[in-house]
Amino acid sequence: MSENTMNTAMERNDNVQNSNETKPHIELTKKDITKTWAYWLSFHRISQCFERYYGLGVCVTLIPVLKKLYPRKDDLSKALTRHLETFMTDPGFGAAIIGLTVAMEEEKANGADISDAAITGMKSALMGPSAGFGDALNSATMSSVFRALFIPFALAGSAAGLLAAVCIFLWFSGIAYFSCHIGYSKGKKYLMEVMTSGKMKSLMLGVSVLGAFMMGVMTTNYVSISLIPEWELSTGAALSLQSTLDGIMPGMLPMALTLGCYAFLRKGGKILYAILGVIVIALLGAVIGLF
């Protein structure tokens, strides 16, 4: 590059508004967005680390798009560096942020005045809500509902039990696919509205009810505690502790145990200590002949 062209390039940068006619307009297609989605679900977590979580993964996800948008090497370099920042969210709804990022990068590449800070700021502002919704709806509720539905098949030795994983795969992939396209096409305002709107909250609420209900069903089916002690009454009939409790309310002990764990975990107890605690109680109870 000669000194002359360098100078003209710098002049062009000075009046950014008018520089559009000299730069070819680069437009992304639907295919590019779908490719971004595929990259996102294939690669974004592989390199996760404590320092920046999915930072490098986001950069890898965006590489095909960024290469298309920034043919000039120093622009590309800046864009790549920008997307190595800390990022962490839900793989399902998080794809909406990636879609929106692509939309902003496209505008920026075509001359719009969008600062690096605007893009990074948008990413960090949305990753919290998307992780919140995602953890509750996708990870906690829907995944466990799918598991709950297909565990009985697995226990019966039927390969249909594997459908639990197929459902989880389809659910996350579908959410991510639509989120990615919607994030790209509808823009920032729309995403903000959706994430704070009542509709999303109502959906979450309804699904949480389903989730809590299924946990109750699973408590009955899979948590088993039976008490051994039995006394012979003066009438000669046997009084069993277990059947007495069942007479008051069947399934009382499994429910009490689960709610006890709930109270412990909710107060910030660690799941590992809950597991160890249950094992200790079980061993002690077994030794003294209670269970």
Partner: peptide, 22 residues
């Protein structure tokens, strides 16, 4: 004792989900 504990342990996972539902 292990057998008894195995029957009781699922309670911890179910409780975890209830906590996550928040």
């Amino acid at each position: 004792g292990f057998r008894v504990a195995g029957g009781m342990l699922p309670a911890t996972g179910l409780a975890m989900i209830l906590v996550l539902l928040n």
